[in-house]
Nucleic acid binder design. Sequence first.
DNA 1: GACAAACGCGAGCGGTCGCTCGCATTCTTG
DNA 2: CAAGAATGCGAGCGACCGCTCGCGTTTGTC
Lengths: 218, 218
Amino acid sequence: MSDTSEKEQAREKEQPRRRQARGERRIAQLLEAAARVFCTSGYTAASTNAIAREAGVSPGTLYQFFPNKEAIAIELGDRLVHEMRAAYGEALGPVDPATPLEEAIGSAVDRFITFNTEHPVFFALMHGPDVPGRMAEQHDQLHTTVLGRIEDLLASLMPGAAPADVTRTAHVCLGVYKSGLELVLAHEGAERVAYVQEIKDVLIRYLEPLVGERLGRS
Amino acid sequence: MSDTSEKEQAREKEQPRRRQARGERRIAQLLEAAARVFCTSGYTAASTNAIAREAGVSPGTLYQFFPNKEAIAIELGDRLVHEMRAAYGEALGPVDPATPLEEAIGSAVDRFITFNTEHPVFFALMHGPDVPGRMAEQHDQLHTTVLGRIEDLLASLMPGAAPADVTRTAHVCLGVYKSGLELVLAHEGAERVAYVQEIKDVLIRYLEPLVGERLGRS
DNA sequence: GACAAACGCGAGCGGTCGCTCGCATTCTTG
DNA sequence: CAAGAATGCGAGCGACCGCTCGCGTTTGTC
């Protein structure tokens, strides 16, 4: 009964499908178009017909490469997460205890701000309240991963704190970053730079008292 | 030609319509139902049929009292804003220079958190990325008002700062509050209280260096 | 009690959206 | 070149949504 569908699913994973170069190009083209549309309309309000039109193809062509609307966002999200991990995976890695707090926060914020400004669709997809089923899963997974990294980083900075406090502090840091990112994306040029500095200031001043007992320089 | 519609519009403003007590009750009932549905689904995803069902009436009855879906949210927003102004309008009023920073921030945060936890639909309506036309206006107006209040308050605390810096600081404060509110609403009991304290800590530590030159106590 | 206005109902209209299907075209393979 | 697979098209299906309309019921007024 379910043998067929299971086997098909398995084959889908192993051999994603026989594709020509043209097909791969169309997929990239469609994902770029989807990123633009998602950016301006959000996931739910974006229509698949609009994505196809933006890509300059027919709705039928879109569904040649994606089984449904959600799969487009999933694939887009997967590629973004992959790219983020490849480029900035170490941004939240274990921090050198000799590094001053300002420097650690500054470089982490800079890396993530750079990524988010270069890929504004990332914020649109991961912040929308509308994302359905499978996408929420993907979102939660990334959220948990990032949060875990921040917790580890914080735990190494404030060794005496209770786990619950570390978790709470991590949530606050991520929340501050997200709200700051919204402000950063809403401004340009010098003002944008100033807002980036504000994020760093907020985080530094928030965390400094918590890591006060750390070995100071000199 | 347009005479008729103009007069009707004018009359609509002056004499909102001949209503029976039953009608007023239905309106309140419908607004409560709408608040629940907006809370769980957001504005766009909420269907007018679902609101009517939640209120236990037919779609036709709903449209007896509201010209369209947007008007429901508008009316709900108006009542919430009115209630907020009545209850907490002074929360961001001119601050007594003798009040310590912690106390000023603490009481302002407490007031707004109380309002938002008692009316969760307020956050849902004012934070959703989906709000259409007229509602965005209402949202912007409130946003501008609150921001202006914060700016005035900050200006009195940091007299030496440039206006652009005050504006930026106000945006950051509001952003921090909003992201904190999200965390507060996501938790309950003791943990919720702890997150409220975190908001205060973030704001106090962020603002303290900026108002350092203020007259200190003793 | 008579009359009008307000209230209440729910089938259904017009429109959009996600998605399909039949068929034409292009590419790969032998 | 022939055959089959991949690609491309766009009209349109089914579902849902905002909203309407005709008609029956309740309420206020004289």
